[in-house]
Write a protein that binds this DNA or RNA. Structure first.
Lengths: 336, 336
DNA sequence: GAATTCTGTTAAATTTTTTCATAAATAATC
DNA sequence: GATTATTTATGAAAAAATTTAACAGAATTC
């Protein structure tokens, strides 16, 4: 693959009869030059459709106008929406984004992180990553980092954390069920204690306490993976064990989907005998049957906020390290 | 944001008492060096966790180990699955990917294309892009390009086209409906004549002909946008107009979703009075009510194939410009 | 003693930005 | 109006980190 290399500044300089430095000055509107030379240079630039070699610029300036986004799974609608928002904002501001799917694989995360640094990214957005492993290395290079969704267990000047109000979401979901007469509320959640899930759980727990509801450990049903099948099996098992519950707070819409499948199979009427509420408000929750009540997050806002904060940090427009907690909303549909 | 720049080869050279070139040779396992020096160098490299500056390498070698992916909307599950497959394969092979959402905006497409070239990408995957606008510029720089899904209206040595067998999909869908007794089959499709949709339509048309079914123009219902609401409105309008149809072939699952919503609102029984079949087999089609029969594509295979072909082209392992048409499958569910 | 092999050094190349120096033009001073 | 001071425009050269090619010296083999 021989590549017909494009013109370089040197060529432009020669063609327009000035020095390389002058071309650079004109192109970047930086330093002094006469109107006359500007015109001369720009004519040649346009005639030959000259494009700056961004690799060379990056080497020289140590700035790349590139950020990295590390995300578990872009196939997940919620993450995809966040990424889209990041990408859109970055495009507007002249940044490109490296997309890095980790599938929660720590090794892949570390490998990507190193590679991104070596490629000279200006900043990094970490969506729900494992976040602990890289802490030390991260802090050595100091590019700004923004965490979305999952809280990092490290802190630094250049680190910001952005998430939805998961605690409030847990409260809203639980209260919605209690207001509809439920007392035996099962919570269906990821077994790993991710900050997001933990917050939702705490909202649930505190709300039960507030209403003087006391439930045994068996009402906390953990699944190994946030996945339709896992949820279906777990709920089915609880039914088989004879657990009496009148509602399920699923910490994810996909878990809710699985729970509903189990209930249907057992011919348990929704919402009459058991009510269900999910979390995330992914599109499927609206169109599945029955339509799932849920707590909606705003992934666009999460993504845009993250991108904005990161770019501001990169460009030195801010250096405050405040965290952002975005509001959630209760969406009532047919399962409650 | 002062950046504590990492060590350079020069530092490693100094620290291990050899020359820069020697360090390079050791690191790239290129040229000759003694085992002794190798050890000396690697010790220092590991001790200080040296990372090659990929920007400098890229500048010198004119190779970046980066590819670009231009995609209309990563939020679309089908595209997301393709992108994930691309990314996974690239990661395995040591490439990173720039993700570029265009939202079908031609200007954004062109801007991204230029930027990607300036950033020195080694190759490009175009998913269902507008593909015509950039043709000339594309061919000037000669990096290999692989098109997925939508057929480019240009051809070149370095261009490959990969898609599902959309024609066959159209045939399968239409035959499935005919076999279930349908004769008045509406086709619901995107008004833009994208190669994918056109192929599906031709499959439909030819199948009707094969079975001697003759339908008026009014059975071809076009929507401006592939979108739930558009489909709902369009189908509703056809009903109001008094069109008699016993089935709908929707060229996309999302269109099928909208069609079903319209039918439900009009209290038309599915599949008893009207059967529906979609295209793509996105996850929602399985879980919506009634579950949608559809033609399944294999986005993972599309993405992986595209990535493999592109990387082979980049690395000169192949230079054949064959196109790939991947098989589709009929998935029967409740709407037929 | 010549040819071959091995090892390491030096210098050039990639493209852009920046610093420094010089030349030219303009303004300020007496 | 001549001299100095200031401003403006431009070019030359260095720097950024790496790879590669040319080269030189030493060791080995024939």
């Amino acid at each position: 693959m021989k590549s017909k290399k494009g013109l370089s500044m040197k060529d432009i300089a020669k063609l327009s009869g000035v020095s390389v430095a002058t071309v650079s000055r004109v192109l970047n509107n930086n330093g002094r030059f006469s109107e006359e030379t500007r015109k001369k240079v720009m004519e040649v630039v346009e005639k030959f459709n000259y494009q700056t070699n961004l690799v060379a610029r990056s080497l020289r300036t140590n700035r790349s106008q590139i950020i990295g986004v590390i995300v578990p799974d872009i196939t997940n609608e919620f993450f995809a929406a966040i990424v889209l928002a990041i990408e859109s904002y970055c495009f507007l501001k002249g940044y490109s984004v490296f997309i890095c799917n980790t599938n929660e694989d720590e090794e892949k995360e570390t490998a990507y992180f190193k590679d991104l640094i070596a490629k000279g990214i200006d900043g990094l957005i970490y969506i729900s990553g494992k976040s602990d492993k890289i802490s030390k290395e991260t802090l050595l290079k100091d590019i700004p980092i923004v965490f979305i969704d999952r809280k990092p267990n490290i802190s630094s000047n250049d680190i910001v954390y952005i998430a939805s109000d998961n605690y409030k979401g847990g409260v809203l979901a639980t209260e919605a069920l209690i207001k509809r007469g439920c007392r035996n509320i099962m919570i269906l959640k990821d077994i790993r204690n991710l900050s997001t899930v933990t917050q939702r759980y705490l909202g649930y727990r505190d709300t039960l306490m507030k209403y003087n509801i006391n439930l045994g450990e068996e009402y906390i049903v953990n699944v190994k993976k946030v996945d339709f099948e896992e949820a279906r099996k777990a709920v089915k098992e609880s039914i088989k064990k004879g657990l009496t519950f009148d509602s399920i707070f699923a910490c994810t819409d996909w878990l809710a989907m699985g729970a509903i499948a189990a209930l249907k199979e057992e011919k348990i009427a929704i919402p009459d005998r058991v009510k269900v509420i999910g979390f995330d408000n992914i599109s499927i929750s609206k169109y599945s049957h029955p339509a799932i009540s849920t707590i909606s997050q705003n992934p666009e806002k999460l993504g845009k906020t993250a991108a904005k904060v990161l770019l501001d940090l990169i460009e030195g427009k801010t250096n405050k390290t405040t965290n952002y907690i975005l509001p959630v909303e209760l969406v009532l549909r047919e399962t409650t």
